[in-house]
Design a protein around this nucleic acid. Sequence first.
DNA 1: ACCGAAGTGGAGGGAAGTCGTCCACTAGCT
DNA 2: AGCTAGTGGACGACTTCCCTCCACTTCGGT
Lengths: 216, 216
Amino acid sequence: MTADPETTLRADARRNRDQILAAAKTIFAVSGPEVPMEEIARAAGVGVGTLYRRFPDRDALVRAVAMDNFERVLIEAKVIAAEETSAWSALSRLLRQSVELQLSIQLAMVSHRALVILKSDPEVRRLRDEILVVVDELVRGAQAEGRLRRDIGAGDIAILFATLLRQVRAKVPEVAEMAARRCVGIMIDGLSARPGTELPGRPITSDDLDPADDHS
Amino acid sequence: MTADPETTLRADARRNRDQILAAAKTIFAVSGPEVPMEEIARAAGVGVGTLYRRFPDRDALVRAVAMDNFERVLIEAKVIAAEETSAWSALSRLLRQSVELQLSIQLAMVSHRALVILKSDPEVRRLRDEILVVVDELVRGAQAEGRLRRDIGAGDIAILFATLLRQVRAKVPEVAEMAARRCVGIMIDGLSARPGTELPGRPITSDDLDPADDHS
DNA sequence: ACCGAAGTGGAGGGAAGTCGTCCACTAGCT
DNA sequence: AGCTAGTGGACGACTTCCCTCCACTTCGGT
């Protein structure tokens, strides 16, 4: 479904489509999935008309962005897992990269809006689950190696990063970016095994994150 | 300015005012300072009319909430600092409590909206600065004790917690709450001194957080 | 008990912002 | 060179939120 319509697209249209996707990814990442469509269009250097031609409505765009990102992350995760020699180093490298990769929205199922949209799309869910499987393996692996604290689940990590990576504002953009990177660093240290304190509650698994069957 | 109007208020009015403040605090904490006024009114069990009678506009409400919270936190911080025997234990206890105290918005100067509002109010700033002074002392103290990693500033901590404490959604509310608590735990561990990895950039100080002289 | 002042709720006018359509125009492809 | 896919952005409908206003209720002193 991703390869089909892309091939039949005229060259310039194709380019625009990619730009829209890229712009949307960035903007969604910092401002959530509810930003005005026009802003996305502007950032992509196209008109709203074009945007709507390509993605019939906001939901379609969100879905597309999610797909794209999940795919990228999944690949990245697999590559890293293959390259690194230990699960722990793979995990921490993946997390560090996630700043650039804007893992945020992707895991950020944390946004209610995005959540309901994605929930309905089995394909997206499948991808997401695949990612979680990889992460889960890394987690278990790193724990087996004795590098990752044992009182933790993949869900803990997901939540940690999903919430952390959004919207760190500061005086200057560079500071904000640095801040994000530092936060990740601190968190990774917090994750590593050590004689340290015990966490309250029980490890949060990926199941805990599943889209709630919402009542509202 | 806080004691004056409260005393002349009729008993029921007083009660309503408090409920509004409490509701606003909670709601701001999870959804940011831009939520519809009506929602706050509803949560407080009053009509919008009442809300507006007590706080002429949104800004006034935000200010009031900030004042109230800053005051509470400041007191709390001082008490803790006095009770605990080491700066590190004081710091980590304060941070742990911040979940309940919803330190979020207060430090969450992170929200652009709140930021500009509070920036204009010298009284609020004074309070905020006082808090930062206390935290700064704890940070330095804990570092002197060798318990807190040295490559960190009060700003790092502020950012860490401000971003972390907002809106952790999950299947069930209890899980969300637990998740928040666990995140804090992990972060505290990440903050503690250890042979661990070095952080990128330089320590972020409280100055870095100061309201930007904004161009937008 | 009673009454005046203080307080209350929520309907509704109006401002602001978004959405998605539509169509005159441009530029790829053959 | 022409046909057609593609483009941009003005625009009307609609939603959302703000805050005012006023008929009604409640408090608290006498």
